[in-house]
């Protein structure tokens, strides 16, 4: 087991000899992206020439708000279709593959705004994560003996994971009664039920109270240590430092830097990207019209992110009141 507070040593990741530059090739890539471009009404949200994600390590995808991280993430996981570009997963093309097929192939994702299924119990949430369930077929569902034994096995696995994520006491509660942080944990545990090769986490720490952050980070590292590749999106540089073996920086849709965290903070491109963005000036109506036309997609995405966070906060507040 590596030290709890630090990434793997650079040699253990296999990335020791890799140059610290955007689009560099890696020794054992699980995911390879080429020429991926996505525009919203003339505004280019994502424009990535080449990116390889190394197998078995934690890759942090960072960038200032509006850099196109979430759009890129949606493109990778099949939730959005690129205008151009190719992606391979384990060497096979996954262009145009639906998200549910990707999940079955071993690529699962979580969402920035947690998608716990509120009116299902925590254990049912977990069981949904399991793949190839016989009882998920309409006709077999009617013949209970056909799926009963498999369902029990799944339940055992789910209970073990719940215990590991310290959610076992909530097992039979509605997922809607969990706190924001617990939902993040549930979503991660649920994703693990599908026994993925790669797990994509969209801002796993957003809206989580500091006490839970450490526990979440610990879980992420455990995933890597089990051999699962991890990619996560984050805009807070500090979170990235603690856990990522490799950092990819996006700005204005493109990859501007790659390397271990220590090399990233001193990179001039990254400093410019973080300091150069300024997006909170209030707009008046005439500017607004112009702005809608010009920045529509990018600004909208930003606001979506902010709103997601507001929702998260609201939700937590509500739970406090209850």
């Amino acid at each position: 087991m590596p030290d709890d507070a630090a990434p793997m040593t650079i040699d253990a990741t296999g990335l020791g000899a890799v140059a610290h530059e955007p689009g560099v090739s890696k020794p054992d890539p699980i995911l390879v992206v080429d020429n991926m471009r996505r525009a919203f009404g003339g505004i280019v949200a994502v424009d990535v020439d080449h990116l390889e994600i190394q197998r078995g390590v934690i890759t942090g995808l960072i960038g200032p708000n509006g850099a196109g991280k979430t759009t890129f993430f949606n493109l990778l996981t099949g939730f959005d279709a690129p205008d151009t570009g190719h992606t391979t997963f384990n060497g096979a093309s996954i262009d145009g593959v639906s998200p549910h097929v990707l999940a079955r192939k071993g690529m699962v994702r979580t969402f920035q705004l947690t998608k716990s299924l509120t009116k299902l119990s925590v254990i049912d949430n977990m069981k949904l994560g399991a793949q190839r369930q016989r009882g998920e077929n309409f006709f077999r569902a009617l013949a209970v003996p056909m799926w009963r034994s498999q369902d029990r096995e799944i339940e055992e696995r789910a209970d073990a994971l719940l215990k590991r994520f310290k959610l076992d006491h909530m097992r039979d509660e509605y997922a809607g009664t969990l706190s924001g942080g617990q939902r993040k944990l549930l979503e991660m545990a649920r994703a693990l039920m599908s026994q993925p090769e790669i797990i994509m986490l969209d801002e796993p720490m957003a809206g989580v109270n500091p006490a839970l952050t450490q526990s979440l980070l610990g879980h992420v590292k455990d995933l890597r240590d089990e051999g699962i590749s991890v990619v996560f999106v984050e805009h807070d540089m500090d979170v990235v430092r603690d856990i990522s073996d490799w950092v990819v920086v996006m700005a204005e849709g493109a990859i501007i830097a790659e390397g271990p965290h220590s090399t990233i903070t001193s990179n001039q491109n990254v400093i410019d990207a973080y300091l150069g963005t300024h997006h909170d000036a209030p707009l008046d109506l005439s500017e607004e019209d112009q702005r809608i036309a010009e920045d529509e997609a990018i600004v909208a995405e930003e606001i979506d992110e902010d709103i997601d966070i507001v929702h998260e906060i609201d939700e937590q507040k509500r739970h406090h009141h209850e």
Binding site: F79, H100, V101, V108, F111, K115, K119, L128, G129, E136
Partner: peptide, 12 residues
């Protein structure tokens, strides 16, 4: 409850 969540869990 949430179609995207179901998709992300491999359900068509």
């Amino acid at each position: 409850e949430d179609e995207d969540a179901a998709l992300a869990l491999g359900k068509n």
